[in-house]
Design a protein around this nucleic acid. Sequence first.
DNA 1: CTGATAAATGCAGAACTTTGCATATATTTA
DNA 2: TAAATATATGCAAAGTTCTGCATTTATCAG
Lengths: 119, 119
Amino acid sequence: MDKADYEALSARLKALAHPERLRILDVLRREPECVCHLEALLGKPQPYVSQQLRLLREAGVICDQKQGQNVFYRVCDPEVLAWLDAFMGPVDGSTYEHHEIVAACVCPKCAPLVPPLAA
Amino acid sequence: MDKADYEALSARLKALAHPERLRILDVLRREPECVCHLEALLGKPQPYVSQQLRLLREAGVICDQKQGQNVFYRVCDPEVLAWLDAFMGPVDGSTYEHHEIVAACVCPKCAPLVPPLAA
DNA sequence: CTGATAAATGCAGAACTTTGCATATATTTA
DNA sequence: TAAATATATGCAAAGTTCTGCATTTATCAG
């Protein structure tokens, strides 16, 4: 490791070292989510959420993919995925708050979860 | 993980997310060192080094142990030790710069390395 | 084309970190 | 006790990050 390596590493760690960003990553490491879900999850205004996402995107930690009206984000750095497991434990396939969060959402991902209107 | 967990995690990551502190930890994860060695290693003034050490100490990442005139620091959080391996790879027992650094040092650790004066 | 919705961007003030420097403390040696 | 050495602390200026808010862009549905 030379000076540049320590700097690159510290830059990536700085991107992670923030409570709301860790919370975002804890969701994104399970499955991709659109901004509207993260907004609901954090209970913060949309520009705030987009800003944290931008920072993570510019640090190369997450990637975005547009899908219709929505933008889906995922953790795209496999090394960071491994770090997140080390920080927070491996993902448990069990009780995931996702379904609560998105009950009211109509983005392509949620639509199938919402029961048909008057069935 | 609740809000407080994300905050505690981010506080510890903030302590690590700094190039000189990572460099210090990369040395300390191998073996304990006194401040004078770290000063020689970084080539930074002593108060600067002590300040980074204080920050790491207050974050609970390293511990100090006084030994005569010197203070030896080591990584005392086993979880952080594992993180450091994940960030920088496991320690290789091979060429370690320790011996170069301390050639001119007379602290208890180094004294045995220095050849007797006019043998 | 218009209006609605999803997301991104820009900016400014507050808060926090970083770093350099002067000084303090504590231990040892003479 | 005095001088020397190792380390810690306090403080202030410069730099960076954080957050809230106003605005912009892009896409989709009518």
